[in-house]
Design a protein around this nucleic acid. Structure first.
Length: 344
DNA sequence: AACAAGGTTAGAGTCCGTCA
DNA sequence: TGACGGACTCTAACCTTGTT
C-alpha cells in the first residue's frame, strides 16, 4: 500500500547459487536487474527475477505491489528457481555446504522447542553427519561404542551381524528335532538338519548380505553401505522408499537392528512343518536339500525390510511341492556321478 | 589369548482363540 | 464386547564352550 507511490522500493536479492543476500532499492524491474546483475556479477542479458519463496516471476506490474524487503532471486539466461524446493535440490546434490548446514542445524536445534521441528532437524543432522566413508575402528571410534573389541572394521561387524541372524534360523530348524515323537522320523530329520547346517556353514552363513566390501549380487547394500527396504512380503517394492546406511553413524547402526530379514515363505509356520511332513514317509536322501536351503537361508526367500514393512501375521504362502523332493532324474544323475567317481 | 559358534534370555510387536 | 494368554514374527545382549 505505502510502497505503491514511493519512488524506490527496497528489496533483498540473491543469486541462484549463492545464498548471500543484498539489500537493493529500485524504481522498477529494469533498474533492479541492472543493479542486481552488477552486484551479483551476473550477465545482464536475459536476466529475470522471481520470488525467493515460491519462484513466481516478478513482472513490472507485480513489482510495485511487493511488500518492502521482499526476498527475490535474480536469475540469468535459462536459470530457474522453484523456491524452497530448489534449495532442497542443492542441499542434496552437493556435499560442499555440509559442514555449514550441520552448524546451522545444530544452532537451530539448540533453542528449538516444538517436537516436530526438533524431529525434522534431528533427522536432517542424522543424515548430514554421515561418516560412512570411514571404515576402521581408529577412524570412527564412536561408531564402534558398544561393539565387541575384536571387530576392527565396520564391514567385519556387519558381516558378523548378518551371520548371527542366519545362524539363528539354523538353530530354529535344529530345535524342531525335539518336537518329533517317532524315532525313525527324528533320525531322518536330524540327518537333514545336519546337511543343511553344513550347507549354510559352507556359505559362511551368507554374512556377505550385510558386508559392503562384497561383490554386487552378494551384498544387499551399495558400496557405500546403503540398504533399501524391499517392501513387505506381499509387495514387489517398498511404497515408503525406506532406506538406511548403518555404516554412517552409531545411531544408524543401532536403528538398523530393527530392520528384519523377513522369510516370505515363513520359516516356522510353513518351511519347517513342510520339512517335517515330507519326512513322515520319505528318507532324508529323498529331500531336495537345496530347495529347503534356499528357502531358509538365502535372499531367494528373504526380504530385508524396515520394521513398518515387517508383517508378522501369517503370510499364507506355501512351499512348492514339486521342488521339495529330488526328482527321479536328479537321483539318476547322482547315481551316474557316483559310478563315475567309483570308476575314477 | 583371540576368535568362532552356540545357547539362553529378554523384549519388541502381531494375530488369534477363549472366556467372562 | 473386550481382556488375556499363547503362538508366532523377529532382534540384541550376555554367557559358555570349542578351536586355532
Amino acid at each position: 500500500m505505502f510502497g505503491l507511490f514511493r519512488k524506490h522500493k527496497p528489496v533483498k536479492i540473491r543469486s541462484r547459487n549463492e545464498n548471500t543476500k543484498y539489500g537493493v532499492a529500485a524504481k522498477d524491474v529494469k533498474e533492479l536487474l541492472k543493479k542486481g546483475c552488477k552486484l551479483l556479477q551476473l550477465p545482464s542479458s536475459d536476466a529475470h527475477v522471481c520470488l525467493y519463496a515460491d519462484g513466481t516471476k516478478v513482472t513490472e506490474e507485480f513489482f510495485p505491489t511487493l511488500p518492502d524487503n521482499t526476498e527475490l532471486v535474480v536469475l540469468c539466461r535459462d536459470q530457474t528457481w522453484s523456491g524452497v524446493v530448489c534449495d532442497l535440490g542443492q542441499l542434496l546434490s552437493t556435499d560442499r555446504h555440509a559442514d555449514g548446514l550441520i552448524e546451522a542445524a545444530k544452532g537451530l536445534l539448540s533453542d528449538e522447542q516444538t517436537p516436530k521441528r526438533r524431529k525434522i532437524l534431528m533427522d536432517l543432522l542424522l543424515n548430514l553427519e554421515d561418516r560412512s566413508e570411514l571404515e576402521s575402528r581408529e577412524e570412527h571410534e564412536d561408531w564402534f561404542t558398544g561393539v565387541d573389541a575384536r571387530f576392527k572394521t565396520k564391514s567385519a561387524y556387519m558381516k558378523f551381524n548378518c551371520e548371527s541372524r542366519i545362524r539363528g534360523y539354523m538353530k530354529e530348524v535344529d530345535g524342531a528335532t525335539k518336537t518329533i515323537q517317532k524315532a525313525k522320523v527324528r533320525e531322518e530329520f536330524l540327518k537333514t538338519s545336519k546337511s543343511l547346517a553344513q550347507m549354510v556353514k559352507t556359505a559362511r552363513h551368507n554374512g556377505c548380505y550385510f558386508d559392503r566390501t562384497e561383490k554386487q549380487p552378494d551384498r544387499l547394500c551399495t558400496q557405500e553401505g546403503w540398504f533399501t527396504c524391499q517392501g513387505s512380503y506381499e509387495q514387489k517394492v517398498c511404497q515408503s522408499l525406506h532406506s538406511i546406511n548403518p555404516y554412517g553413524s552409531r545411531e544408524s547402526r543401532i536403528v538398523f537392528s530393527t530392520w528384519n530379514l523377513d522369510h516370505r515363505i515363513e520359516k516356522k509356520r510353513t518351511i519347517i512343518p513342510a520339512l517335517l511332513e515330507a519326512l513322515q514317509n520319505h528318507k532324508s536322501s529323498d529331500i531336495n536339500l537345496n530347495y529347503f536351503y534356499r528357502l531358509l537361508f538365502t535372499r531367494e526367500n528373504l526380504k530385508l525390510v524396515h520394521i513398518v514393512c515387517h508383517k508378522k501375521g501369517a503370510h499364507n504362502l506355501l512351499c512348492d511341492t514339486n521342488e521339495m523332493f529330488r526328482r527321479a532324474s536328479d537321483s539318476e544323475k547322482q547315481k551316474v556321478k557316483g559310478k563315475r567317481r567309483r570308476l575314477v
